[in-house]
């Protein structure tokens, strides 16, 4: 068998992988200040549940050259996105990085979870592996702590907000789980976003009363959402399609 046909088939296989793969890992290192409502709005799925055991392994398909850490996740409540079926009550949450086969992959800013902790996690839809990629790395994880009043307080790096002239006398109220649910409801019921909808504070709840709306820094927030961008047809997929067509023609001629 010559070298060339192998390469063609490898490309075709790559195309199949790419076409079938819905895995969308997020990884990061340098962050910029993004309002929490924007982070919530961009997250396809937001779940609340408990972290179980974890292990690291190579990814599958197009991610076979990357190491991921897989966390068992007991989904107690779907806060945003389609409700997962009962069979999905126990899921695997995937995050880039880990150690496997004597090799380590470290990505600064990747989310890490502890066994037994209850978290709110922002994830992408189920990928081809049947796992859920954390959306936005460390921004995609929120821990829950109960305060003296019994309110479930959210904590995590994602709870950054827009800049404002700060008043020393004001103490911001922390985000609670109820605030997050209200925000998600508001975003879901909002009219289709206009050009600058992400910059608007209309969808924001009042979790941090001291934060003034319409800050100058907001005007530079990026509008593009990688999830909502129109998909482009990757080259391997095109090659695969043409490959299948070619093989079909060859078979047709061969058998005719």
């Amino acid at each position: 068998m010559s070298r060339r046909p192998i390469q063609l088939k490898q490309w075709m296989c790559g195309g199949i992988w790419l076409g079938l793969s819905l895995s969308l890992p997020s990884f990061a290192s340098t962050f910029y200040q993004q309002p929490f409502p924007t982070t919530v709005e961009e997250a396809p799925l937001i779940l609340k549940g408990k972290i179980g055991t974890h292990y690291s392994d190579w990814g599958k398909g197009i991610n076979s050259q990357k190491i991921f850490t897989y966390y068992a996740f007991q989904n107690d409540e779907t806060l945003k996105g389609p409700t997962l079926s009962s069979t999905n009550s126990s899921l695997l949450v995937r995050e880039i990085g880990g150690e496997k086969d004597g090799v380590g992959l470290h990505v600064e800013g990747a989310a890490h979870f502890e066994t037994g902790e209850t978290v709110v996690v922002m994830v992408n839809p189920l990928n081809s592996e049947g796992t859920l990629d954390v959306h936005g790395m460390m921004l995609g994880k929120l821990t829950i702590e109960k305060d003296a009043n019994g309110d479930e307080i959210l904590k995590g790096p994602a709870l950054w907000g827009s800049s404002s002239t700060f008043s020393l006398n004001q103490t911001p109220r922390p985000w609670t789980l109820s605030d997050l649910k209200r925000l998600i409801r508001q975003q879901a019921s909002a009219t289709p976003p206009a050009e600058n909808s992400k910059l608007s504070q209309k969808v924001a709840p009042q979790p941090t009363p001291s934060i003034q709306p319409s800050q100058p820094s907001n005007s530079i927030l990026p509008q593009a959402n990688p999830i909502s961008q129109p998909p482009t047809l990757p080259l391997p997929l095109v090659i695969m399609i043409f490959g299948i067509l070619g093989i079909s023609i060859l078979l047709w001629k061969f058998l005719k």
Binding site: S26, V103, H106, E108, P226
Partner: peptide, 14 residues
Amino acid sequence: SISSSIIGTTQVWY
């Protein structure tokens, strides 16, 4: 796909 709040990333293999 990376989040729009992420400007750059480094994958360190060791």
